[in-house]
């Protein structure tokens, strides 16, 4: 239970708790998330609930479980490391995109890691 609590807290509540205590900005979460980043490493096959909710957004354009049926690139079959680097490059603008940069800027580095872990796990589990 303690572990579960910590995961939930770190993964989703950290920034919102900062908000509730009056810091007033979700961005505070990025500062808070730099420390416990290693603690939220989810085990293979185990979906982090916050990671799941974040990642379900991606499937609207990239296909269910990240497998595209059209011209938009699939994100399934990619490693978590690849996806994290790609999302961060879109976020910083160093990688060209039409719309991905506008999406990636909406996530903290910690959230990007959760998304990358989720699809990295989907890829491994589907192998």
């Amino acid at each position: 239970m303690a572990v579960k609590f910590r995961v939930w807290l770190t993964a989703c509540a950290f920034s919102t708790l900062a908000l509730a205590t009056g810091s007033g900005a979700f961005a505070a979460g990025s500062g808070a998330s730099s420390k416990p980043a290693k603690q939220v490493q989810v085990k293979r096959g185990e979906a982090n609930p916050r990671g799941l909710v974040l990642s379900l957004s991606c499937s609207s354009c990239h296909g269910t479980d990240g497998t595209s049926v059209g011209i938009i690139p699939s994100i399934s079959g990619r490693s978590a490391e690849y996806l994290e680097a790609a999302l961060k490059a879109f976020k910083s603008g160093t990688r060209y995109s039409t719309v991905m940069s506008r999406h990636a800027k909406g996530y903290t580095d910690e959230e990007i890691r959760l998304i990358a872990d989720y699809f990295g796990n989907v890829s491994r589990n589907n192998k």
């Binding site: 609207s60 354009c61 990239h62 269910t64 049926v69 059209g70 011209i71 938009i72």
Partner: peptide, 10 residues
């Protein structure tokens, strides 16, 4: 077009 194909599939 790619978006439409994927969201209706999703």
């Amino acid at each position: 077009s790619g978006w439409y194909n994927n969201i209706v599939h999703d």
